[in-house]
Simulated assay, not measured.
Amino acid sequence: MSVGSALAAPASAHALVQQAAASSYTVTPERIWASTAAMLALIGVLLGGLALARSAGRIRTGNGRAAAMVATAAGLIAVVNGGLVVVTADGGPGTGNGIVGGFVAVVIGLIGVFLGRRALARSRRTA
């Protein structure tokens, strides 16, 4: 192995890393995964808020127990998937790895879990 080929390998690897960086408008599978997890987390927050309002008696259609369980499950799934996106990301924001969406999914998913669990606890007290 010559010195010239040994020095050329790291330079070509660096060029590949530079090409791999996606533009901010490129849709990559990792970004789709992170966005889907964030949307699931948002659904969990909405259902958790609705279940909390039902259990508090603000909305008179049912007790909201099923919505609270779905909100908790959706939040947990979003947290796990968002965490997996963050752990498997190779670069930071703007690289196309979906790391920002992963963090968003984790934070919003935790809020959904909190709201769902709170609505479940409230529905158990009133039942």
Rank of each mutant, 00 (worst) to 15 (best):
L42D: 07
A41M: 02
N81V: 15
G49M: 07
A66V: 14
A15M: 05
R117H: 13
R65N: 00
G75W: 00
A127I: 07
A37D: 00
Q19W: 11
A6Q: 07
Q18P: 01
L115N: 05
S123Q: 09
V17Q: 03
A74Y: 07
V70L: 10
S5H: 04
I111Y: 15
R118L: 12
S123V: 13
A74P: 06
N97V: 12
R60F: 12
F114V: 11
R125F: 06
S12R: 10
A67M: 09
G96W: 07
R125M: 14
R122F: 03
A127H: 13
L42Q: 08
L50E: 02
T36K: 08
V106Y: 02
A121V: 09
S55C: 05
V104A: 12
V106G: 01
A71D: 00
A78V: 09
V17M: 10
V86A: 10
F103E: 10
A8H: 00
G64C: 01
G82K: 13
G49V: 08
I32D: 12
R125L: 14
I111W: 15
I99A: 04
A68G: 08
S12M: 07
V100I: 09
A51K: 04
D90C: 10
I77L: 13
R124T: 12
V27Q: 04
A66N: 13
A105R: 03
A13G: 03
R60W: 03
V3N: 13
Y25F: 11
A66Y: 10
S55R: 05
I111T: 13
V79A: 05
A73K: 01
S55G: 12
A8G: 01
A21V: 10
V85L: 10
A21M: 08
A53Y: 03
A121L: 12
A71K: 02
A119T: 00
T126F: 14
G83H: 12
G64M: 00
I111Q: 11
G64F: 01
Y25C: 08
T88M: 11
A74W: 01
A38C: 09
I111C: 03
L16Y: 11
A105K: 04
G57T: 05
G57V: 06
L120Q: 10
I43D: 05
A6H: 01
I99D: 09
A20I: 00
P93I: 15
L115F: 11
T95C: 13
P93L: 14
R58E: 08
R125W: 14
G102V: 07
L7G: 04
S24R: 13
L46A: 13
L46S: 04
G101Y: 10
